[in-house]
Design a protein around this nucleic acid. Structure first.
Length: 583
DNA sequence: TAGAATCGCCAC
DNA sequence: AAACGTGGCGATTCTA
C-alpha cells in the first residue's frame, strides 16, 4: 500500500480541479472517513474521490461548507455514477451532515452479495471482495483510528487506497453480474437502495414511557411465576424433608429444567415449547413453566434493551436493515430487529405516530400463495384468488368437494396448515406434528390437497427436481441462489428439495416487496410521508394526520403496481389501515 | 475468559 | 433426533 498517490484538498481554491474531473467522468469511486458510526451524532472528516489514476481527498473539517456545494450537486446528480461499498453508510452521513441525497449509486457491497449467490463462505467486506475479485490485499488497520484530529500520512494513504480500489472492483463485479445474468436483479436492488437509506435515516418513533410501563408489569408477573417455579422445581423429590433447602434451579437452562422435572416424575423428551405444550394439560407446573418462558422472553428480548436503541439526537430508533439479508433476497433487520416485535398490542402499540402524525400500515395479502398460483398456473388456485375467495376456506372446499358454505372452522384450519406448510416443502410427518394427527392421516390430507391443486403438485415436484439437477434456483427477477447442499447426501437431498420449492416463492416475494419499497418511496418523495419500517410483506409509513388518507391510497396503489409487475394471472390485494399505532 | 456453538423463540 | 423455508437474538454451555 505504500506509495499511493493522492491529493489532499484543504482549501476552497483547490476544488475546481476536482470539479473538472467530475465533469468529464462517468463514474467516480466514493468513500468517507467519519468520527464515528452514527450519522446523527458523528461527522464526516474525509471525503475520498477516485478517478482512474487520480485519488482526491477532501478534508471536510478544513473546507468551508459553502465551497462544497458544487461537489454536492455532482453527488446528487444521477448522471454521474458514484461507486461505493455499502453506500448506505456514506449516504446517511452525507444526508445528516450536509442534507445531501446521494444519487446514481453503484454499490459494490450489494453487487458482491448478489454475485455471491447465497454462499455462506463468501464474505463481502471491502477487504474480502477486493481480495477475491482483484487479488489485492488491503490493510484495514487504520479504519478504526481517530479521524477527528491531525491525519498522518498513513491514514491518508489508507483513505486513498480505500477509494482507489472501487472503480476496478466495480468493473470486475459488473462483468460478473453480466456473466451470471444478474443485471435485472442488480438494477432492482440499486433502485431500492435509496428507500432503505431513507427508512434508516428517518427511524421509527417509540413511546418510551408506554414501553417502560409495560415492562414493569411483565417484570412483576415474571418474578412471581419464577419464585413459585423455583420453589417447586427445587424440591429434590416429593418426599423431601421440610428442613432441606432444596436445589437451586436455573429456569433459563433447558438442561437444569429437564433434570428438575425428572425429579418430580415428569419425563419430557425435550424442553422445547412444542413438547412442553403437549404435557401442559397433564401437569400444571409445565403450564406455568411455559408462562415463565413467555414472560422472560418478553423481558430479555423486548425489554429495557430496546430503549438503548433510541438515538440521543433524533429520539427515534434507527435500526440496521441489511438489504440482501437472506439468499432469497429478504431484507433482515438488527440493532434492534424491528421485524420480530411480537404481534401483541402491548408491544406494537408502543411504536406509534408522534403527535399530529399517523401511521399507514400496509401488507400484501397472501402474496406467497399468489406467487405459487402464478408460477404453477394451477386453475383452481388461480380461480380462488380471481373470485377473491377466502383462500383457506376455498382450499377446504376444493379438497372435500363441498360448497364454500359447508366448510367448518376445523376444516378451514386444516387447509390453512397445508397452504402454509406446503410452500415450505413440508412432508406428511411435519403436517402430522403440526395438526396433531397421525402420519397416515396427514398423508391422506396431502393427497387430497394435491388432487384439488394438481398444478401446484406438478410445479412443486419440478421445482424440487430442478434444485436437485442444477443445484441452484432463481427468482422472477433472476436472483440466484447456488445451494451448498450435496444431492447425494441423504439428509441434504431432502433439504435441497424443500429449499428448491421454497426459494423461488419466497425470493419472488422479496423481488415484489423491494419493488414496492422503491415505488412507494418514490411516490412519497417531497411529501410529509416516509417509510419507517418494512417486514417482508408489510410497509409502515408515517405521515401527517391531514394527508393520511391520501398517503394510504398512494401506498396501496404502489404495492399493487409492484405486484402487478410480476403477477399477471392473479390479482394483488393489499390490506391497508390508517392508525395511531402499529397494530 | 472471550468467542463459538447450541437451544429456544420472536417475526414473516 | 427430526420431522416445513428464511432470519435475529438472548441465555447458557462448550471450547480453545
Amino acid at each position: 500500500m505504500n506509495g499511493i498517490e493522492y491529493q489532499l484538498i484543504t482549501r476552497a481554491d483547490e476544488l475546481p480541479a476536482l470539479l473538472e474531473l467530475f465533469s468529464h467522468a462517468s463514474a467516480v469511486g466514493l468513500d468517507s472517513e467519519t468520527t464515528g458510526l452514527d450519522p446523527h451524532t458523528s461527522k464526516i472528516r474525509l471525503l475520498q474521490f477516485s478517478f482512474p489514476g487520480r485519488n482526491i481527498l477532501l478534508d471536510v473539517f478544513e473546507l468551508p461548507s459553502d465551497s462544497l456545494k458544487p461537489v454536492f450537486s455532482f453527488l446528487e446528480n444521477p448522471a454521474l455514477t458514484k461507486v461505493a461499498h455499502n453506500a448506505k453508510f456514506d449516504a446517511k452521513f452525507l444526508r445528516s451532515n450536509f442534507g445531501v441525497h446521494l444519487n446514481g449509486i453503484f454499490d459494490t457491497y450489494l453487487s458482491s452479495v448478489l454475485v455471491g449467490a447465497g454462499s455462506e463462505i463468501d464474505r463481502h467486506s471491502l477487504e474480502a471482495s477486493v481480495q477475491r475479485l482483484l487479488s489485492i490485499s488491503m490493510n484495514k488497520e487504520a479504519q478504526l483510528s481517530d479521524w477527528s484530529g491531525h491525519l498522518d500520512k498513513y491514514q491518508l494513504e489508507y483513505a486513498a487506497h480505500d477509494s482507489e480500489v472501487l472503480l476496478p472492483l466495480r468493473d470486475a463485479l459488473a462483468e460478473k453480474l453480466n456473466e451470471m445474468d444478474l443485471n435485472v436483479i442488480a438494477e432492482l436492488e440499486h433502485e431500492c437502495l435509496p428507500s432503505i437509506i431513507d427508512m434508516e435515516f428517518r427511524g421509527v418513533y417509540l413511546d418510551q414511557q408506554r414501553w417502560t410501563d409495560r415492562i414493569s408489569i411483565v417484570r412483576r408477573e415474571c418474578d412471581a411465576v419464577s419464585l413459585s417455579l423455583k420453589e417447586e422445581l427445587g424440591r429434590a423429590s416429593s418426599q423431601m424433608s421440610l428442613f432441606d433447602s432444596g436445589i437451586s434451579v436455573n429456569l433459563d437452562s433447558p438442561h437444569q429444567v429437564r433434570d428438575a422435572l425428572l425429579r418430580l416424575g415428569i419425563d419430557v423428551d425435550s424442553t422445547s415449547e412444542w413438547h412442553l405444550t403437549r404435557m401442559a394439560g397433564d401437569h400444571p407446573i409445565v403450564a406455568r413453566l411455559l408462562t415463565y418462558r413467555s414472560l422472560s422472553k418478553s423481558l430479555s428480548s423486548f425489554g429495557e434493551g430496546l430503549l438503548e436503541f433510541v438515538n440521543p439526537s433524533t429520539k427515534r430508533i434507527h435500526a440496521d436493515f441489511r438489504q440482501i439479508g437472506t439468499p432469497t433476497g429478504r431484507i433482515t433487520c438488527s440493532s434492534p430487529s424491528l421485524q420480530q416485535i411480537p404481534h401483541g398490542i402491548e408491544y406494537r402499540s408502543c411504536f406509534r405516530a408522534p403527535e399530529g402524525r399517523r401511521l399507514v400500515v400496509a401488507d400484501f395479502s397472501q402474496i406467497e400463495m399468489r406467487i405459487l398460483a402464478e408460477l404453477s398456473n394451477d386453475d383452481a388456485l388461480l380461480k380462488a384468488f380471481r373470485l377473491r375467495e377466502d383462500l383457506h376456506r376455498s382450499t377446504a372446499a376444493q379438497m372435500y368437494g363441498i360448497p364454500l358454505t359447508h366448510v367448518t372452522p376445523h376444516l378451514r384450519e386444516k387447509a390453512k396448515g397445508l397452504n402454509y406448510g406446503l410452500v415450505y416443502g413440508m412432508g406428511a410427518e411435519g403436517l402430522a406434528a403440526r395438526l396433531g394427527i397421525t402420519v397416515e392421516e396427514a398423508g391422506a390430507l396431502i393427497d387430497r390437497y394435491f388432487a384439488a391443486y394438481p398444478g401446484v403438485d406438478r410445479w412443486l415436484r419440478r421445482a424440487a427436481d430442478l434444485a436437485i439437477d442444477e443445484g441452484r434456483a432463481r427468482t422472477a427477477s433472476g436472483r440466484l441462489w447456488v445451494f451448498n447442499l450435496d444431492p447425494l447426501n441423504r439428509e441434504e437431498h431432502g433439504q435441497l428439495r424443500r429449499v428448491g420449492k421454497n426459494a423461488p416463492i419466497q425470493g419472488t416475494g422479496s423481488d415484489i416487496f423491494k419493488r414496492a419499497m422503491t415505488i412507494t418511496s418514490n411516490r412519497l418523495k417531497g411529501s410529509d410521508a416516509f417509510i419507517v419500517n418494512s417486514i417482508h410483506d408489510e410497509i409502515v409509513v408515517e405521515c401527517d394526520q391531514a394527508t393520511a388518507d391520501e398517503t394510504a391510497k398512494i401506498v396501496n396503489q404502489s404495492m399493487i403496481d409492484a405486484g402487478s409487475e410480476f403477477l399477471f394471472r392473479v390479482p394483488i390485494e393489499v390490506d391497508v389501515s390508517v392508525t395511531d399505532c402499529w397494530e
